[in-house]
Design a protein around this nucleic acid. Structure first.
Lengths: 195, 195
DNA sequence: CATAAATATGAATGATCGTTCATTCATATC
DNA sequence: GATATGAATGAACGATCATTCATATTTATG
């Protein structure tokens, strides 16, 4: 078995275990057992438990930013931009709920240096939503009290689905995305036409 | 010093440490040190670390339900009920951010029996919001796709403030509550008059 | 096939975990 | 003032933690 398979298996199981039970509550022994190897071997692929967490979180946040930038290309005007942002955000979050949950929950498990880097990336993402809201507000398109607060409100709202969405649930992915798009558009005071 | 002071000091420091760093990442030694006592003494007040967590979470969820029921008394009609729900929810969450964060994050640290009880209480709370949304939708007052999904969207949105609100922040408590009330009312398609 | 590099093993490291316990201490009751 | 009680101490328990390492095995390269 080539090395890269083991490494990605470690990533996959670590993502699953850390997101399910928390970084601190999962031991390297458990992780190794889940992968089907012995504890020492993990250190051939990742220098420490902390480095493994950083790898998972950085991979996620970079992938999210990449998807975001691709989704926002050539989309003009606050209303269309907000719609594109919400669609991409919710779609991505439903596709990678574990990655999202881990990045959200385990910031506090990072040491100071690593946390600073991840937070900077997250702030960049939040800032891009804030800019859309500011622009919509200053043009009189959006009716909101405060762009910064509203950006955070929306991010919380749109991210929450990761905690309860199931593939075999009552509503499919597109229906849930649609609920969120509508809720977000209406939250800034826009009218959404009935389907 | 009477015993009750020590017990509440343990509660206070446990709430702080568990919410800041996570239940699994805080040791009984650290907790004891934060309280200013030795590790063994905690067990005179709580039979186990798990029991301490259950105590904190049950206290919170019951207090939230109590505040909720008081806030909803004699409030009639979906629009007024939604407004009352949001106001109470956000106010309570800004007052007790650590309690909220702990109850939200550490469900997975509870054993099966305790988790079942807490989840049942939380579902009761979520159900009451869902009922308001269903009622508003069926009367044609709210424009939402799905009451269950919208209830969860709103709860995520309204709970998020606990993760970033600071007493010395740019906006005061009432302003933040107002942002959330407006965002929530508009999210169901209601018009909110400018202040 | 030989050799080197990468990877896996499994035991061992010292530290720390939640919990227990015999003991001491302070306070309240009779 | 003797005694009972709840609380705090501080050492100790076995278990488990992340990590290291010498060794064995597998894989890739000549």
């Amino acid at each position: 078995m080539p090395a890269t398979d083991t490494k990605s298996a470690i990533r996959r199981e670590a993502l699953r275990l850390f997101s399910e039970r928390g970084f601190a509550a999962v031991s390297m022994r458990e992780l190794a057992e889940a992968v089907g190897m012995h504890q020492g071997g993990i250190y051939n692929h990742f220098p420490s438990k902390q480095a493994l967490l950083v790898d998972l979180m950085a991979t996620h946040i970079n992938a999210l930013l990449e998807a975001h930038e691709a989704a926002m290309e050539e989309v003009q005007g606050p209303e269309a931009q907000l719609r594109a942002f919400v669609q991409n955000h919710v779609s991505y979050h439903l596709d990678y709920p574990k990655d999202v949950f881990l990045a959200y929950m385990e910031l506090r498990s990072l040491d100071a240096v690593n946390r600073k880097d991840i937070v900077a990336l997250r702030n960049r993402y939040e800032q891009s939503l804030r800019t859309i809201l500011e622009e919509g507000r200053s043009r009189g398109l959006f009716r909101i009290d405060d762009a910064a607060v509203h950006a955070r409100m929306l991010l919380s709202m749109l991210t929450g689905a990761t905690t309860w969405y199931r593939d075999d649930g009552r509503l499919d992915r597109d229906a849930i995305v649609a609920c969120h798009v509508r809720g977000a558009m209406q939250s800034v005071g826009l009218e959404v036409t009935e389907p």
